[in-house]
Structures are given as C-alpha cells and as structure tokens.
C-alpha cells in the first residue's frame, strides 16, 4: 500500500508550562521515524496558555510546532480535546500519530482512532521502521509475551511508554510555531472537580530511580524508610499491590499491570516476591536490585543485584552506606 503523510507527535505539558519529559522523548523517537521514512516531523500541543511550552518544543528538532491554544483547553476534557485536534488530522492525515502512554494519551488516542477508523497500538515499548513500515512492539499477557504489531490503515496511531524514546539535544535555532484555530463544541462530559492526592514533583513514571516495597514491608512504617532512600537517590516511592490493598501506601504508588508502568534507570524492590502482575510494571527498568528474605523469590531471577535477607536489617545499612559514599 502506498502511504504518505508526516510523523506527528502529540505533546503534553507538565507542571510550570514546560513540555512533559515523555513529549521530549517522543521528539527523539518521532525524528527517527521521520528520517526512516523520509518525511517530516510535526508536533502538536494543546492547552491554554501553552506558548512557552510550544517555543520550548520547537528547539527539540521538529519541522513545525502546531499550537492549539485556547481557554477551553485548560483542563483535559476528552470531548473538547478530541474535536480540537480532529480537524487537523482530517485535513492532513499523518502517517503516524504518537502520544505518551499517559493518562491523557490512553484516553484521547482511542477516541481519535475510532473517530477516524485508524489502527492504534497502545502501551508500546518500542517503535521502529522496517521495510518502509512502522512496527510497534508491546507487551501482552501481562508481559509474558511481546507482540510486534502494525496498523493496516493509512494512519497509524500509538501510545508509547515513558523512557522508550531518547530526548534529542536542543537546538539553538527553533522551528516555526504555527497557531491553529480551535473548534469549541459543547461537550457532553462535564468535569465537576479534581482532587490532587499525590505530590507530582517527581512523578513515579518519570523518576530515574524507583524504590518499591511489597507485602513483606509488614506495615506503613517501613515505607518511611523507603521514602528516605528514594529522596537520597532523587527518586520516587512505589509499591506492589498488597501494600496498596492494605492501605500502607496510596494507590497512586502502585507499580504493575493494574497500576503504573515504570522504566527507571534503577529499580529497587524491597520485600517484593515478583508476581507476574508486578513484573509487568517494572521489568523494563535499566538495573533491578532486590532485597528479600526468601532466597527462592522469583524477583531474584529478574534482578541484576540481590541480597537475601530481612529488609529491616539490610536496608538501614544500605541507605547509610550510600549516604556516606554520596558524591557531591
């Protein structure tokens, strides 16, 4: 099939009107695809007052930034976001549309894909060009298998996990930022309110280091020790499902197929046995370290470093030794 069209990245903003790090990673991935297919790279940003983020994105190698900036797009409402971008996709259908596998990406991309009858591959851990086709790699069956998939439609859509793409070096000569007119229909969904529970200074999905506790933590107190270690390493605290079910850690901390999927440079699993459901959420980490008193715990099979022992005895000296040897 003859296919045309550019590569398009749907960017998101993080705190403080900056592009989210996942969006910068997608700029790297999008550029690889565009070069591989001999086409151009556009980035679309939606929101209210996103001028700074749009200008910032323009430094990360796209050929154009399309800015859909409108007061009605301040907070995410799927009805408004979908209509805002749909016109753009209809008037010049891209070869591929990439978004992060984030809260927004998971909600918006399916709506766009089904509106335009396009193939969408979610939760990708790899995207590549092979023989002129875009192939998407994603875990299935809780990570017990990896599927290589492609869209059968002219436009392919995908949501990509954090830390899959590499952030390109910013350029001194940014590309053009082009404002796009925004349609504002009356939404059917009404957002009545938001409640923020977790501090997003260091979002779990973006943290370079994640320190997680499991069932063997035995209670809430242990998690304060994990927080101490995480803050020493500039990371975030996670948990497997049992501590969340028991109320020792907030649900926003849960790592696994039913929680968050993380791929930090370093994952420290404390008192976690390594269920399939948990492994699916962290097995893409750079290095994995396990502390568990059961020498037969499955977690050791998927770890790079391990200590067999009770965390109550191992962890304090581990944290203390790291603090003593901290480089300035």
């Amino acid at each position: 099939m003859e296919r045309s069209g550019k590569i398009m990245v749907l960017a998101e903003t993080a705190k403080g009107d900056r592009p989210a790090s996942i969006s910068l990673e997608l700029m790297g991935l999008g550029r690889e695809l565009a070069d591989g297919l001999g086409t151009s790279l556009s980035v679309v940003i939606l929101g209210s007052g996103v001028g700074d983020a749009a200008r910032e994105l323009a430094r990360y190698g796209p050929d154009e930034v399309l800015s859909l900036d409108h007061p009605s797009l301040g907070a995410y409402n799927p009805d408004l976001y979908k209509e805002a971008i749909l016109g753009l996709l209809k008037s010049s259908p891209p070869r591929a549309l990439l978004a992060g596998h984030t809260s927004l990406g998971q909600d918006l991309l399916p709506r766009l894909a089904f509106s335009l009858d396009c193939g969408l591959v979610t939760d990708c851990v790899g995207v590549k060009v092979e023989g002129g086709e875009i192939l998407f790699i994603r875990p299935v069956f809780g990570g017990n298998a990896l599927a290589v998939q492609k869209a059968t439609t002219d436009t392919a859509m995908a949501t990509v996990r954090a830390r899959v793409g590499e952030v390109p070096a910013p350029s001194a000569t940014p590309c053009e930022v082009r404002p796009v007119e925004v349609e504002t229909p009356a939404p059917r969904l009404e957002i009545k309110g938001r409640e923020i529970i977790e501090d997003r200074e260091c979002p779990l999905e973006e943290a370079p280091v994640v320190v997680s506790g499991g069932r063997g933590m035995g209670g809430e107190e242990g998690f304060s020790q994990l927080r101490e270690l995480a803050s020493l390493l500039g990371g975030a605290v996670g948990a497997s499902r049992p501590p969340v079910d028991s109320g020792w850690a907030p649900t926003t901390c849960q790592v696994g197929i039913t929680g968050k999927v993380v791929a930090p440079d370093l994952y420290i699993a404390v008192a976690i046995s390594g269920s399939t459901q948990h492994l699916s959420g962290m097995s893409e980490a750079g290095k994995i370290v396990a502390i568990n008193k059961d020498p037969d715990a499955y977690i050791f099979k998927v770890s790079d470093y391990g200590v067999v022992g009770d965390w109550k005895q191992v962890l304090p000296s581990f944290t203390a030794a790291l603090r003593e040897t901290a480089r300035d």
């Binding site: 957002i191 938001r194 997003r200």
Partner: peptide, 8 residues
C-alpha cells in the same frame, strides 16, 4: 488520575 481523581 495519575495524581488523584476527578469527578465527571
């Protein structure tokens, strides 16, 4: 939501 909840 990743950091909390919303009512829709």
């Amino acid at each position: 939501l990743p950091d909390g909840l919303e009512v829709v």
